[in-house]
Design a protein around this nucleic acid. Structure first.
Lengths: 229, 229
DNA sequence: TTTATTAATGTTGTTTTTACACTTATGTTA
DNA sequence: TAACATAAGTGTAAAAACAACATTAATAAA
């Protein structure tokens, strides 16, 4: 029985993560300042190499966990980048993943130790290799996903206001949305719980807080829907 | 200067192609009967290994060309499959690509020599490894693409009737479409040329033949659109 | 000339989407 | 404590898109 495809070439396989977060300033990505050559000191996506006994999804979650301390995060494979000289050191194919995290949840100390930092997506530094392209493609995918899955919620704190949700969608789609139409569309999805509690930070009147209805949310995650915003 | 990431593991990287075709019997995929171990004699997607000095897209077009003789075919990268034992011989990550070809154009002799064969998508043999899953995901992607790009046209002969186009879309979406609504939606895209010429095969009356308007077609390829069928 | 067959064509009711402005609640300030 | 300032909350009407549907037209064959 054959036990190798001996004539075929082997390559390094990397995983790079586009980690999206959202806070009151807008949509951000988590970047790291490389502390090794090549391109030491330059900004980069968070990444690492696939291990021999590891599945790509596991590598992505391992890498995310290493740099943020987070587990059980929504991640999705995006695309394999394979330009010959994309990494000048050695032929490396990189598979990109995107993750959505609540920006307040991550381990701040950890990311500080790694020289990682959040940047607004429209005001991020130039990145090494083909990472700029990876980010642009990830944004596209995020926009698309947003329209077929109730995915944006991963980015918000547990309790949030309608305004926060609206601003999140505006940041993802980078366009203004009509407040009333947005609210009625979201309500028609029927995945939110309106709480008694109000958030008094943002206004005199205060605005109601919402949480997701986990069950209905999971249900919608299964069956795609169309959310035309 | 660093010239290797010496601690990282290397793996084999394969490319597997889901090749869609369409004829008067419906939507089909091109499969090959393996003539090497493991799983010799079983049906499989057409695939091969990435070479050291080769980009994934090139590998995909090389493989497609090898088995069909075709060049300049629309191909798109889909997904990287990385289960540890997906290939029992050796750890292999496979990147799937899908291609759309006009079933009458390929080199029939070539595919015969390779023991390749067209199968209706709903009546294909069981495939090796994770190839069944790859095919199912490719069908999903094809359906999606169809709704945002005028992509299905790649599968038709140069001149085609509205009925053929309708049946192609019905096959891709696997549902019946209303003929009149379909035609008016297609016409609203404004990417077809209606010829004087009629196809007299299918009826006494004959039905007008159409070609794509290349320019407008290219234009639509840039800017996504929504085609809700 | 009749017949049989498929092609071609438009309208209407329903649903969805968009555009749009005033009132309410409440903390702050005079 | 009354007026004020601020953002929250709410509904409707017009326009656009969609879905459902049946008749006439062209031609080859009988």
């Amino acid at each position: 029985m054959l036990n190798s495809y001996s004539s075929a070439d082997k390559v390094l396989l990397a995983v790079d993560c586009i980690i999206f977060g959202f806070d009151n300033e807008g949509l951000k990505i988590l970047l790291i300042q490389r502390d090794f050559e090549p391109e030491k000191g330059k900004w980069s996506l968070i990444g690492g190499f696939l291990k021999r006994d590891e599945v790509l999804d596991s590598a992505a979650t391992r890498i995310l966990n290493t740099y943020t301390g987070l587990n059980d995060i929504y991640m999705e494979q995006l695309y394999a980048y394979s330009e010959i000289d994309r990494d000048p050191v050695e032929r490396t194919i990189s598979v990109s993943y995107f993750a959505l995290i609540n920006i307040e949840n991550h381990n701040a100390e950890l990311i500080q130790n790694y020289h990682a930092e959040w940047f607004p997506i429209n005001d991020a530094p130039n990145l090494i290799f083909d990472h700029n392209e990876m980010v642009q493609n990830a944004i596209k995918r995020l926009r698309y996903k947003t329209s077929v899955k109730p995915i944006g919620f991963e980015l918000l704190p547990e309790k949030f206001t309608m305004r926060q949700l609206l601003e999140l969608y505006e940041a993802i789609l980078s366009k203004e949305l009509d407040k009333r139409n947005f609210i009625s569309k979201i309500n028609s999805l029927d995945i939110l719980n309106k709480l008694e509690e109000k958030d008094m930070q943002s206004s005199r009147k205060g605005s109601y807080l919402y949480t997701f209805n986990k069950e209905k949310y999971e249900e919608k995650l299964q069956n795609n829907f169309a959310l035309n915003l």
